[in-house]
Write a protein that binds this DNA or RNA. Structure first.
Lengths: 165, 165
DNA sequence: GGGAAGTATCTCGACATCAAGACATATCAC
DNA sequence: GTGATATGTCTTGATGTCGAGATACTTCCC
């Protein structure tokens, strides 16, 4: 089975036969898969009326467990966006009634963002749809290969370290 | 070795133990690796004075082979951006002297974008830097594992088909 | 306690991208 | 040939993100 990257590597090989293109075989595929996944995610979510950036925020709150509250600072570290962006996102999610802002009782500088019941329902539905769509993409891969793939990816990802201190 | 996604899966497992999280083990790692790679790319390129979007365009021209010419339409299919974006990018690359616009001799609606000598030097230097940076990330992975990883990724990517008709 | 430094959040301006439409030229059917 | 449709590129307006700065509160140290 041939893929887009085989073409890419072939073209580079013609032009720069002097270089070792082995890294491209791995990383180009990862980048391209990530792009296709973004589109698949988008599709899965629009069926549930939410967008990818909304899912990112709601999912972080959902994973935190009851009472589904996190500070904006924690949220921006989880989702890797800047503070200005997070303010904007929380504004829009509040307007849609999926989250609400509360004063932080332990720090009067701070705020807590809390999932509403409606937000919890939305993120749970969207997550199930996402898992279903992703499971489809893995349908042809034997369990054994899937496990091996996850392990190899882990060994590449682990050195980057966790972004949540 | 533990990675960010192990934490992620653990958190989801606590909250939604009813779901099969196997797809997350694969696709979350791919998405996160892609993000880290973007940053690594950015670093490798800034040392050579160009930005990631510039590399995407210049590399497409470079891979095409001499005389390093492609139409804007072809470029936007290669780089997956819209036509407005490509117009803007070619404008800026032209201003920097890395590419030039020529009328297409075979179609008077059309234009050809051609790499300048300066552009060719820039993209070649940047590509070598990128390969070096990526090779570093693979340093701890035995050749055999790297090959296996590339093959598994290919089997996921192939069904998406080639974007260049 | 009082002042300095640190932390948390929000505001504002700049910018790259997208989506839709405008315009010019090519291609096809008759 | 002529008209209708398709194609290729550029323009325009809206939007989301980033980065830097502003503001408010807390914490640390003397």
């Amino acid at each position: 089975m041939r893929d887009e990257v085989d073409d890419l590597v072939e073209a580079w090989g013609r032009e720069r036969g002097d270089l070792d293109l082995a890294p491209v075989e791995v990383f180009s595929r990862i980048s391209r898969l990530a792009r296709h996944l973004d589109l698949a995610r988008r599709d899965a979510f629009t069926a549930h009326g939410i967008e990818s950036w909304e899912f990112d925020v709601l999912a972080a709150l959902r994973r935190a467990g009851a009472p589904y509250e996190l500070s904006p600072g924690r949220l921006l570290r989880e989702t890797l966006v800047t503070s200005g962006t997070m303010t904007n996102r929380v504004d829009r999610l509040t307007a849609r009634g999926l989250v609400e802002r509360l004063p932080d009782p332990r720090d009067r500088r701070g705020v807590l963002v809390r999932l509403t019941l409606e937000g919890k329902a939305a993120v749970d539905g969207a997550f199930e749809a996402l898992l279903a769509a992703e499971a489809d993409l893995l349908a042809d891969l034997p369990d054994r290969d899937r496990t091996k793939l996850a392990a190899l990816l882990r060994s590449l990802l682990a050195p980057f370290g966790s972004p949540t201190p």
